[in-house]
Amino acid sequence: MLRFLTRRVLGAVVIILAISFITYLLFFVLPTDPAQLACGKNCSNKVLVAQIHHRMGLDLPVYQQYWDYMRGIFVGRHMPDGQNCAAPCFGFSFANDQPIWPLISDRYPTTLSLAVGGSAAFLIIGVGLGMLSAWQQGKSFDRVASSISLIGNSVQIYFIGPLAIALFADNLGWFDHGHDPTWSSDPVGSLNGLVLPCLVMSVIFWSNYSRQTRSLMVEQLSEDHIRTARAKGMSSKYVFYRYALRGAAASIITIFGIDLGSVLGGAIITEATFGLHGLGTLAVNAVYQLDLPLEMAVMLISATAIVVFNIVVDACYALIDPRIRLA
């Protein structure tokens, strides 16, 4: 297991380095001079651009630039113009010349909470529904659940988001409208503000998960080892939870691992729908303003998050399936 994990972590480091290098090339080397962008849309002062060029270190060789950038993330850096940038340093925003990290650290709790909360919601609802459907296989509950799943699969966050706000927040008053969490000062309020966004976000996922879970469970239940367990006198309930679910869980986790990217995407759309201030809105604004350092930082952090969560997913898979763990 340790060997397995070490290998995955080392592999992940290589992947993250590769991603960072490629993004760096894309953002800072390939397009027109970033200094021009940093200077602003209507900047025509050649001297000023050259100054910025130097200040950003763009006159150094590419590998040097990349090294400085990466080093800055871990130990901070002094920019050529003498500005100090504390670790983790992602450079300075083109838009307002502020260091990037505080902008992000301000925003990521919202996105992370949404992603984790939304995932929890769709996993619980989706897997739960799928299990119930498999248990009730062929009965009316199963048929109703699969119809609902089909509907859920075809709706969009920006469509049901406003509907949900109007119904559950405005009319019924069950939940708050949805606001950014402030976990340290107001945990209960934060939770309350996240319920609606998380539920709405989960809708586009759980329908898929309930269908996948149902078919995985049905498949597992027809496996030979299930029959063996029944032949030992184990009750259907025991066999369902201990044997079939364990087998299905391995596959569900794999699907979840593949979906991590979409989860992040879903979180960003949900932010926009509920007017929350997370990394999504930050990144969208960065794109509008051609704020390359900010875009780069958001991209790098999201990629790292996905890679890290993938390792967690792999570890869970290995815990569930000894054939992976002991191979």
Partner: peptide, 21 residues
């Protein structure tokens, strides 16, 4: 209550008939 206690079964393909987990 009878299965496994009074009557038990040995299946053909032991790789699929035992749970891998």
């Amino acid at each position: 209550k009878l299965r496994g206690k009074k009557m038990a079964m040995v299946f053909q393909d032991s790789l699929t008939a035992l749970s891998p987990y």
